[in-house]
Design a binder for these strands. Structure first.
Lengths: 222, 222
DNA sequence: GGAAAACCATAAAAAAACTAGGGTTTTCGT
DNA sequence: ACGAAAACCCTAGTTTTTTTATGGTTTTCC
């Protein structure tokens, strides 16, 4: 009987117990599934570092939003994913996130390239089981809502550089245009130009920022 | 008892019969599944045009490679897909292709944005059934090998414009560099520059074209 | 061995992006 | 409804990036 080791990291204790319960009941060939858990960034990091020294987890489930207990600086699950990739490159990584936020999904798919990505509303015992099996045998596994985000992106002929994406992102979270220059290495003039350019790219010439944001959302950029 | 109408277009008569046989046996809620078939571009086009006038097919399965019988000019399944999208926008489209050719997949995902994409070696009764159900309820459905191609693309931080992609494509099919200028609106000098630039992007400075092509293949561009 | 193709380097020309500056319009708080 | 802040628009000069032509060197291949 072989053992399949899973680490689940989520800051909600109860949901994590739910995962543990479901995952350990999966019947999977001659595997015995064991789930370890962690519910803070720090605890998760420790587990991963430990595992790098001894056995490596087969799969790491990782919540996108993780807030460490006694700190202000919020470490994201994304950071932990990047770290895990370095420390334990052989472990499969599956991200879980509450919403199908395209900007975040796109960003994580590029920075971590996880073996799976599940939007939480897609998660149930059946999909969890499928995710585990798929990720082991023929990754990747993307849940339904993650797939529609990915589809939007792939169906796109517009290519934006990093600055364009950042501008869109900041606009979408309500950053004032004049404050964007604090986050991006560009003059205010350039940012205005780029906004105009973006609007024309998305066919929203002479329209307001809201129209631009909606169009960019529809195309899967934010 | 409702009816689910499917049109399958593939130039291999026998494989198409296989699809018909499998698809019509699918047990799917209270649907009765009926499969029409066509095995040339022309026949497929006619079926689609007819259906635009009366009922619309719920799903159209479409082979990527279609050669019409009495013509030299080969129409691709991609063209037919684009046509179908215009004529019967409500029909779900599922592409089937023999190999996981990234350039082709990327191109079709952009031009047609099909509701499904299956690489033929992934196709079996089970996956066909899953494709049908997924496409009806929560598209898209991408088969395993299609997903790994998509994953490569999404994990990429390199963005290429249309000319770069064309250059890579032509190199990959063996077009001589000096002949590429016939296909792209650029001077030979620019093409050389772009090739150099591409090689440096993919970390293959001073290496030959083969190295570039392999790197681009690995990243899912061709 | 020799021609064709690929590669490299340079410099000039063209296109695109950035910036500063100033003005007009819209938005928003009070 | 007012005034200030922000957003928007436009111009012109600068910088950066791309394109192009040209001429030479190396590699490939019959």
């Amino acid at each position: 009987m072989k053992t399949l080791r899973i680490l689940a990291i989520d800051d909600h204790e109860m949901t994590m117990l739910g995962y543990k319960f479901i995952l350990e009941r999966i019947v999977f060939e001659d595997y015995n599934i064991i789930v370890d858990t962690a519910n803070t960034y720090e605890a998760g990091r420790e587990r991963i570092e430990e595992s790098a020294q001894s056995f490596a987890y087969d799969i790491i489930f990782l919540d996108v939003q993780l807030f460490p207990p006694n700190e202000n600086q919020p470490h994201s699950g994304e950071d932990l994913g990047i770290l895990a990739r370095q420390l334990v490159p052989n472990s499969k990584i599956i991200f879980m996130s509450s919403f199908s936020d395209n900007y975040r999904i796109n960003s994580i798919l590029r920075s971590v390239d996880p073996d799976g990505y599940m939007v939480k509303t897609d998660i149930d015992p059946k999909s969890l089981e499928e995710a585990v099996k798929t990720v082991i045998f023929e990754p990747p596994y993307y849940s339904s809502k993650a797939l529609s985000a990915i589809r939007k992106k792939m169906a796109n002929d517009i290519t934006l550089d990093e600055n364009d994406k950042k501008i869109l992102y900041h606009l979408s979270i309500g950053t004032k245009t004049k404050d964007i220059e604090n986050h991006i290495q560009l003059s205010s003039s350039s940012i205005e130009n780029r906004k105009r350019h973006l609007k024309s790219l998305f066919g929203k010439e002479k329209e307001n920022d809201l129209a631009l944001i909606l169009a960019a959302k529809n195309r899967g950029f934010i």
